[in-house]
Design a protein around this nucleic acid. Sequence first.
DNA 1: AATTTCACCGATAGTACTATCGGTGAAATT
DNA 2: AATTTCACCGATAGTACTATCGGTGAAATT
Lengths: 222, 222
Amino acid sequence: MTSTPLSRSEAKDLTRRKLIRAALAILDEEGEAGLSTVKVARAAGIAQSSFYVHFKDMQELLRVLAEEGGERLRSSMREARRRARESPGDLGLHRETFRIPLESICRHPELLRIQIRARHDPSSSLRDFASETAAAYREHHAADLAALGYTADNERDRRRLDMIADGINAATNALAMGHLEGRYPDLDEAADILTALSRGALRLLRSTSGATRPGDEPPARP
Amino acid sequence: MTSTPLSRSEAKDLTRRKLIRAALAILDEEGEAGLSTVKVARAAGIAQSSFYVHFKDMQELLRVLAEEGGERLRSSMREARRRARESPGDLGLHRETFRIPLESICRHPELLRIQIRARHDPSSSLRDFASETAAAYREHHAADLAALGYTADNERDRRRLDMIADGINAATNALAMGHLEGRYPDLDEAADILTALSRGALRLLRSTSGATRPGDEPPARP
DNA sequence: AATTTCACCGATAGTACTATCGGTGAAATT
DNA sequence: AATTTCACCGATAGTACTATCGGTGAAATT
C-alpha cells in the first residue's frame, strides 16, 4: 500500500463521501427508519458527534442524498434519450424506448426503491424528491409519446396521455423490480410486454382522438 | 345521550377496536415511523401502559392490522369477482374487470398506501402482508385473463402472463392513486385506459403464443 | 355479602438516539 | 518558528419511546 498524503480539505471531502455512501447503503438495506447518526457515522468510521461537522442534521444529509440521486437519475435519462434517438428503425425505437428505462432502473435500483418508498411515506423527508422524480419520469414518457406522433389538443386527451404515461411508468417500475427479484430474467421480454401494453393504449388514442366518447374500436387514424 | 351499560369484556373489546382504528389512522397519516405505543394509546384514550393489556407489543398490533386488512381486501376482491361475473356482455365484462379493482382500491385507499409502502420498506413488519397481498392481486388478475381465454402452456407464456398481470396491476394502483389525488376524476376513463393497455398485451399473446420469437404482429389466432 | 378477577392507571427503569461542548493534535497560515 | 484553524474525539444533557410493576376500583364470581 502506498501512503497517500491528503490535504485537510481532501480528507474532509473523503469522509463526507463516506458518510453519503454509508447513508445510501443503510437507506437501501434498512429503510429510512433504520437511519441514525450513530449508524451512519460508525459505518463511515468516525465518531457520532463528528457527523455534525459535515451535516447540520440527518435532514440535511437526506436533502443532499436526494439532490445527488436526482442528478444521477436525470443524467441517466438524458443518456437514455440520446441512445434511443440513435436507435435504427421505427420498431427499434419503440422497443428501445422501453428497454432503456428498464436498464436505467436496474443500474441504480436503490434509487427507485428509495423513491417509491418516499413517494408513499407521509413521514419521509424525501417526499419532494420522490414527487419531482415521478413527474420527471412522466414528462420523459410524454416526450416519448410526442416523438411517436401523439399530441393532445384537448383536456380529455391530455388527461389520457397523462394516465397512459403514469400507467406505463408504474408497469415499467414493476417489471424492473421483478427483474431485480429474479422473476423476469430477460429484460428484452419485459420491454416487449411494455411495448405491447403501450401499443394498446396508442391504438385507443388513435381511434378516439378528439371524438366525444369511445365506442369499441373504429379503425380510423386522425 | 343514553347511557350504555357495557360488560367488562365488551368494554375491553371496544378499547381494542379503538386501538386498532387509531393505529390504522396514524399509519396512514404518518407512516410506520410515526407509530408508537404513546401515540396509539393516547389516540385511543387510554394510558400508554394499558396498551400492553391488549397487545404484547407494537409488532403484534401490526400483525393483527395486517390480518384484518388482508381479510378486508380479500372480501373486496371476492365481491369484485362476483359483480364482474354478473356483468352483461363481453366488452362490459372486460371493462368491469378493470373498473371494479379501481373502486375497491378507492374504497380503502389507506390499505393500498400502507401495502405499497410496506412492500418496499425492508424495515417494515408488514412486508409479509404486502407480499401476500401483491401475490393475491396477481392471481386475481391471472384468473381474469384465464376467464378471457388466455392460458399458458409453456414457461415463456407463463412468464408473460405474470408480467402482464404485474404490469396491469401496477398501472391499476397508479391510476387509483392518481384518482385519489384528484388528477383523474373519472374512474371510467381510467378503466378505459387499463382496458386499452391490456388489449395490447393480449394482442401480443394471441399473435405469438407458442411461437419461438415475436416478429411484429402476425394476425393469427391460436 | 364476601371474594376474586382484571382493565386500567401512574411511576419508573432501561434503551436508543440527537445535538452540544470543551479538548486535542496535525495541517495550514503567518 | 509561532500561531491559528479545524476535523475529529469523548462526554454528556436532553428527548422520545418501550415495557414492567404495584396499586385501584368496579365488574364478575362465589
